[in-house]
């Protein structure tokens, strides 16, 4: 009997202390920041692509830098679920509660997969958190190619419509759209050959099986540096500021006479319906991480990405505008499979 009452009073004490603790947390929360109560446990980051890929690396650097700078109180739990161009992993993240403890990758792939009719949910069915970086596209040829400039290539392509083969990554993916946009702006038509990976695109370009390829700066950089591949132009608004021995002389498409600029992007999103405090906390944390020297060095510079920071509603608006642009392009190119 006595034992039991002692136990009971101990229990009460524990409960009381717990309650006080919670009250003080709540007070601190309403006091100046929601940060004190959120995040109380590690955040799950679902990477919808395979380990070692561009998105996976981005998330791992966020985790590393965030922990180093003590922006993230606990390391992220990173879970790779790849498949269906990101659909499998994003679907998985969407099944989790929108309580701030699950986030995933936001990118233009959601838009593209939706437009090609391979997505079980609408592309914008997420809580947008932050867009972190842009990646551009380059048209590249083998170093011994007769096409010295983008103009040469365009002239040749005009002379034989559908005759020049351009390699890109994937079949129902962004490269298809970007090639279509380039074609429209330049008034040409290529024969698009879609391979499974950026590596295969490079092998087939180097092996001379295609005349040119569309590739990200990071995919082509080493080959350009080694003098195996030449870049005829980049899709950015102004020339890229990376390794100047390689990129200083690469004109933008606009400079080279093809009046269009385009890019890919990556960022962070969560399941639909996340609370504002949590989104704000995450935006704030991501801001600190992406403003750091470490982020610049370990991610942007190393993988030739251009940093941006667009958040919440602005990010959603950009995604919706982009959807409209891509939809028009696909209609024009006869690619649209959705009604």
């Amino acid at each position: 009997m006595k034992k039991r009452s002692v136990l009971r009073s101990v229990m009460r004490m524990v409960l009381l202390i717990g309650a006080i603790g919670m009250l003080s947390h709540a007070a601190a929360g309403s006091g100046y920041a929601a940060g004190a109560k959120y995040p109380a446990k590690p955040i799950l980051f679902v990477v919808p692509y395979a380990p070692g890929g561009g998105t996976d690396i981005m998330v791992r650097v966020i985790d590393r830098v965030g922990t180093q700078l003590k922006v993230l109180p606990q390391p992220l739990v990173i879970e790779n679920k790849s498949g269906g161009s990101g659909v499998v992993g994003k679907s998985y993240a969407k099944t989790k509660p929108a309580d701030g403890y699950t986030v995933t990758c936001a990118d233009d792939s959601s838009t593209v997969v939706d437009l090609f009719g391979n997505s079980p949910w609408p592309y914008n069915d997420f809580t947008y958190i932050a867009k972190l970086n842009r990646d551009y596209q380059m048209i590249v040829v083998r170093a011994d190619s007769p096409y010295k400039t983008l103009k040469d290539l365009v002239t040749a392509a005009k002379a034989q419509p559908n005759g020049l083969k351009i390699a890109g990554t994937g079949v129902s993916q962004i490269d298809v759209l970007h090639v279509a946009m380039f074609e429209k702006a330049a008034g040409v038509k290529f024969n698009y050959i879609g391979f499974d990976s950026g590596g295969q695109v490079m092998t087939n370009l180097l092996g001379g099986h295609v005349e040119c390829a569309i590739a990200n700066p990071g995919e082509a950089y080493e080959q350009i540096r080694a003098g195996k591949v030449r870049s005829l132009g980049v899709s950015s608004e102004k020339r890229l500021g990376f390794d100047s021995s390689v990129f200083k002389d690469v004109p933008t498409w606009k400079e080279a006479g093809v009046n269009i600029s385009l890019s890919q992007w990556r960022g962070v999103a969560g399941p639909k319906g996340m609370a504002k405090e949590q989104v704000d906390w995450l935006i704030n944390a991501l801001k600190k991480i992406t403003d750091s020297k470490e982020w610049q060095e370990q991610y942007l510079d190393k993988f030739l990405q251009v940093g941006v920071f667009v958040t919440g509603a602005d990010m959603q608006k950009e995604a919706e505008e982009e959807y409209a642009v891509y939809k028009t392009i696909m209609e024009g190119a006869g690619l649209l499979k959705k009604k």
């Binding site: 070692g52 890929g53 690396i57």
Partner: peptide, 9 residues
């Protein structure tokens, strides 16, 4: 491919 990603990191 994973090995290559690691090398770059």
């Amino acid at each position: 491919a994973i090995l290559m990603g690691a090398l770059m990191m």
